[in-house]
Design a protein around this nucleic acid. Structure first.
Lengths: 337, 337
DNA sequence: AGCGCTTGTGTAAACGTTTACCGTTTTCGA
DNA sequence: TCGAAAACGGTAAACGTTTACACAAGCGCT
């Protein structure tokens, strides 16, 4: 037969009942003789247990979902790299969902929780809509959200203090004597976009700098648009002396433009960004970037989820990862040759 | 009850049998009245079908596995980016396996095929051992291998002509007048390492250049070791005028070293690499790199797998993606300011 | 020898679907 | 109005496990 052997096949060959086979395979106490016969039958037949049937009975799929906007963004990659081994060590497989920056797609993934093909979900929503909150509340499996959610949302939550992160960067630039600090942001209706926008204004205020709308440009979170947005900014504000970018990809675009415009970095324009992905150390000059602890957040999310899967109900927990400024040559030029 | 509604729950509420519920939910012909009652019961209960039970019955999991050595390598990322949407459009979920450069892990994944939690597998083995071949032959679900496999292996196969790729790079460097062309490779007992090693020797021979073992260094496929290996090479061969790196990560390491040693790129040492990942355009100077068509290979692999899943048995197919040299400033210096 | 206890095993139900099969109802034409 | 055919829907089996329950055998004890 082309179909694989099942416990029934084994039972026949070993001359025992399927219950005994199951018990042997699961290490429950059995007489030595039975165990021997079952084991050798299983080996001869090349038996592999059917995990679908097992899941149906046990009501656990041993799979965990990870949903993010776009697998192309290295910040998510850094998270997956941490999440995957943690889950694997605990016996869970990772099901990947790249939602294409599409909120409807995210809702679909949440609905998928009801299908029971995953035991839990780690999600980084780009926007948190009312629909999201409704799904969170009614979800039949644990959810860990990376990013901010409203107080009282019944999910575990891993966040970073992006307000503090922006402050670190702005203060750093200010400390270098820069006073015309531009800001290239992503869409304001996204979670990070909104947070970083507010934080930028606050940070300026705290330093006694005026908020100048001319200094702000909004695009998306990717390199080409980052370049265009930075280009608009540079053209509009000739005396710009520093640029904060909402993530590393935007900063790469900004570097492209500054190079094209022959503005020296950091002498004329210091560039800082956020996320501190691997790209920051690949770029030239290497990017000063605020680490938002992507790896730690990934790990924390995986651990929160595993804890909840193991111990069931408990009050939702919030883990906050502190941002950390990593200074490189794009603001401190000594290394530039 | 805390457990979700099943078709039985719906059947009770709608006053019909579970068979009718199933039929309605699957769009089989039913009387309008029955359909109405089932649908409204389902909606009121917030019914979501249990995909595990469905899989058990249908013998299809609607999941596909993707196994690679290390999710941190951007070349795999480029593949996932193509694979994911193709699979998703066809209704398959993606289960990720990062095998940590561990052959035993790869075998485990292959064994997993028997567990039936995936309907097929796309794999990039770093080494193809006899055990691999045995598992390929006995696998109970379709496999697509990205990378070379021996003639006659019963799997679909997507490959790139890395021999030709190396030739393109070496010829390019030679055409620029370089004659001392170093080569920093990864482990020789890996599929790409072995192929590129042979191809380097061949390419030199074809150009009438002598093969000088001093010009070759072997490390791993990552940046730090790439830097060390390039360092050894530069120290040993002072008149080196070109460097071919077996992948972009190694090349980044090489650039680090050359910068530290104050060797100008490309004026003194031209650097070329392979894979042409995003990193090549982020590095400075931007890397001349041989594209091995990662995106195309990913897409082709996904399509081969879907085709086989849809149409069942057919002769194994081999798709070859042609390499393409992408010239950037690390060999052609005009753009360096 | 008879009793209860332990140990091991088999039978059968359950997990939540899909679907073959069959009986009932409806429809339609004569 | 009746009969045949078509449409519909219910019962039950099946997918491959795990496990509650019951039964049989073996044991030591009085």
């Amino acid at each position: 037969m082309s179909d694989g052997p099942t416990i029934t096949t084994i039972a026949q060959r070993a001359g025992v009942s399927i219950a005994s086979v199951s018990r042997v395979l699961n290490g429950l106490p059995t007489k030595a003789e039975t165990e021997r016969r079952v084991m050798s039958a299983a080996r001869e037949l090349g038996y592999v247990p059917n995990s679908v049937a097992r899941s149906l009975k046990s009501r656990r799929s041993n799979q965990v979902g990870f949903a993010m906007a776009d697998i192309g963004n290295p910040v998510y990659l850094a998270m997956i790299r941490e999440i995957q081994p943690v889950l694997k060590a605990a016996g869970y497989r990772l099901v990947l969902h790249s939602t294409n920056v599409d909120a409807a797609d995210e809702i679909d993934v949440l609905r998928g929780l009801g299908e029971r093909y995953i035991d839990g979900l780690i999600m980084i929503p780009l926007r948190v809509t009312g629909e999201h909150l409704k799904m969170f509340a009614s979800a039949r499996a644990p959810i860990v959200i990376i990013g901010s959610v409203p107080e009282g949302t019944p999910v575990d939550n891993v966040r970073t203090d992006s307000r503090e992160g922006v402050r670190l960067a702005v203060e750093h630039l200010h400390g270098l004597g820069r006073r015309r600090i531009g800001f290239v942001n992503g869409p304001l209706d996204t979670v990070p976009g909104a947070a970083r926008s507010a934080a930028y204004a606050e940070a300026l205020a705290a330093l006694g700098l005026p908020y100048d709308p001319d200094l702000v440009e909004v695009g998306d979170f990717y390199r080409p648009e980052g370049a265009r947005a930075a280009g608009r900014l540079v053209e509009r504000v000739p005396d710009l002396d520093a640029l904060l970018c909402a993530n590393d990809l935007i900063a790469l675009g900004a570097l492209d433009v500054l190079r094209r415009e022959r503005r020296r970095v950091p002498e004329e324009v210091a560039v800082a960004s956020m996320d501190d992905t691997d790209l920051a150390t690949v770029a030239w000059p290497p990017l000063t970037s605020v680490s938002l602890g992507s790896a730690e957040r990934g790990r924390a999310a995986a651990e929160l989820l595993l804890d909840r899967l193991a111990h069931g109900a408990r009050a939702p927990r919030v883990v906050t990862v502190e941002p950390r400024l990593v200074v490189r040559a794009s603001t401190l030029g000594e290394e530039t040759s």
